[in-house]
Design a protein around this nucleic acid. Structure first.
Lengths: 359, 359
DNA sequence: CTGAAAGCGCTTACAG
DNA sequence: CTGAAAGCGCTTACAG
């Protein structure tokens, strides 16, 4: 009743296990006749090689581990989706390990994957270089996507968070906004810090005062921030949230409080997750092609695995540049309407606002 | 440079590999002194057991495979999230394999997991019993969640789709709606068929005419259906979409066409994914605690794995009953307002509508 | 082109 | 309580 093994196949095909292995791996020379016999036996026995045994002999697992933080939502599911597609195409399996609250847990997760994966994609912003290095038993290829600037000697992919944030603010300025509040991501998170820095820099450049409300990359935290804004005596005319889901949370709070978006307050997010296009008004945001980025990451890691130790070490830091996706949530105050009007842009900057004109 | 193995540890601790194994597995008797020496060596060498080798000896992988269909979205990511949490708590890893367009692909995915997992959770509605059985080499425990009624001899978890659909229609009837259209899920999908059947039955019971628009469980298909509805001469006063994401698609199409929800058309979905609470009006739906269901599924499968062949085979079909979650999208026409008013219910059924009064 | 055999790193009766 | 050794199922030089 237990599944057939390679010996069963060899016996039935009347060849050696070596031949069976060769046929199955397309490695080494075999006659057509042998191949035929083996394949028939495989079919008859419903044989599937035991991957553990294979991995023991080859030191390969055909599996990639993905270490995610404790955050959930469309960003990560989109990313995984892109990786999954690429993994299947390349004959790899995907082990996901998520909800790691801290460096300790992420580290344990990484360690527990040793011998189980050929490489790792790490998205946990909790992990610094030191932790990461000590978590890695041996020389496991790792692709870093934890928002850091990229460790010296590790391949990595980072989003240009700073540049994206600057673009966000500039877009708001162009559409006539001046009192721009930022809802930040969690403290200590490298992505949120870069977005915050971009906001501060762009505002400073425009000579405008800044205001930051703390968020945590969750819808609830965006909602809380939105509530606070709705209760402010002197309200901002625009909000830049560090990610889309907080922007949505803020939008709902503002609207439920009777404020109009974008007429009273413009709103811009970051990521371009699917939901950004499903709220009304549609959410303007800095778009990253998330699934595509995931696909690219997986493919790059596999390339690294396949060329390990051949001298041409890939340790570069690849940058993904977010693109402005304009939807109705930032239509200029003077042009704003309640209908969905993507692409609407300010022609005449509104003048009755404080702050200097940019540029 | 290659990672330490059990022999390295044994040598350094000056014991046998058997003792190292015993200490690490907490199996068999060891003196405190031995344990101490081993643990120190493990620490010094950063030793982590090779899981492939372990799985070869024990025939256990501590890994669960999850086979998903080609559909993406919050439903599946929430489900995976619940499973992931449970898996970590129980010391299991999760291999996900998704985007299987047909039974063939899902079948191949299952086969490729042999020797790699201790059990499988199958969510691919493409897989029928025959395909499934032939995909399984040996006696791999499988928990079915593919929407089928549950195969005779396999443990399964199914959502009471029929009952939920009946509840959906009854809720619409109670709030005064009579011209109720259904946007169905993809043909051949067992979940969508059960929801459709529930709709048809409830409408028949109420003596009302039915109308079905074909959907595919995607936002785009819901949007198309919404457009069609907005162009109908005699418009329905309510729409029951077979899942939330189609309901959202329909909502946007209706609103963009100038129709008001719920004043002109009430809308109800199915699943209660997070986005249902982020659109305006909030979407009334039949809620399933998705993450919780995923957690429960994983735990049940592990239980099955641990008691395999002990005689007490668990082959029951567990039913998850969806619960009505009332939000503003189905506020009674007479009471409907544009502000978010969860829980608003009709007091006086609207009378100026065709169709007979239910009950 | 093919087969016998060593070896991958672990676990687990079996002796002692 | 501890160790020597067999065995899990594969791959891969090495002979032939």
């Amino acid at each position: 009743m237990k599944p057939a093994n390679i010996r069963d196949v060899a016996r039935r095909a009347d060849v050696s296990v070596a031949s069976v292995s060769r046929v199955l791996n397309g490695a080494g020379p075999v006659t057509a006749a042998t191949r035929e016999k083996v394949l028939q036996a495989v079919e008859a026995l419903q044989y599937v090689p035991h991957s553990g045994a294979r991995s023991l002999s080859t030191s390969k697992t055909q599996t990639i581990g993905v270490v995610l933080p404790d955050l959930y939502g469309e960003f990560f599911s989109e990313l995984i989706r892109g990786m999954d597609v690429a993994a299947r195409a390349l004959g790899y399996h995907l082990i996901v390990s998520s909800s790691h609250d801290d460096a300790e847990e992420a580290s344990a997760a990484i360690r527990s994957m040793r011998g189980r994966v050929d490489g790792l994609i790490v998205l946990s912003p909790h992990l610094d270089a030191a932790n990461l290095a000590s978590s890695l038993a041996g020389r496991l290829p790792v692709l870093l996507m934890n928002g850091g600037a990229g460790e010296a000697d590790r391949p990595s992919i980072v989003v240009d968070n700073h540049g994206g944030a600057v673009q966000a603010v500039e877009h708001l300025l162009e559409t006539g906004r001046r009192r721009i509040v930022h809802i930040s991501g969690p403290a200590g998170n490298l992505e949120s810090e870069a977005r915050l820095a971009g906001y501060l820099q762009a505002m400073a450049k425009a000579g405008l005062p800044t205001m930051v409300l703390d968020g945590a990359f969750t819808q609830a935290s965006g909602h809380v921030a939105g509530l606070k804004i709705s209760e402010m005596a002197l309200k901002p005319d625009a909000v830049f949230a560090a990610n889309d889901i907080m922007a949505v949370g803020a939008m709902l709070a503002l609207q439920d409080a009777g404020l109009r978006v974008p007429e009273d307050v413009a709103l811009i997010g970051f990521d371009d997750v699917p939901i950004a296009d499903m709220v009304r008004p549609g959410l303007t945001t800095l778009g990253i092609n998330i699934a595509e980025t995931g696909r690219g990451a997986l493919e790059r890691l596999v390339r690294i695995i396949n060329t390990a130790d051949d001298g041409s070490a890939d340790t570069s830091c690849e940058t993904v540049r977010p693109q402005l996706v304009v939807r109705a949530s930032t239509a200029a105050a003077s042009l704003a309407r309640s209908t969905h009007q993507p692409g609407a842009r300010a022609v005449h900057p509104v003048s009755a606002l404080e702050g200097e004109n940019p540029q």
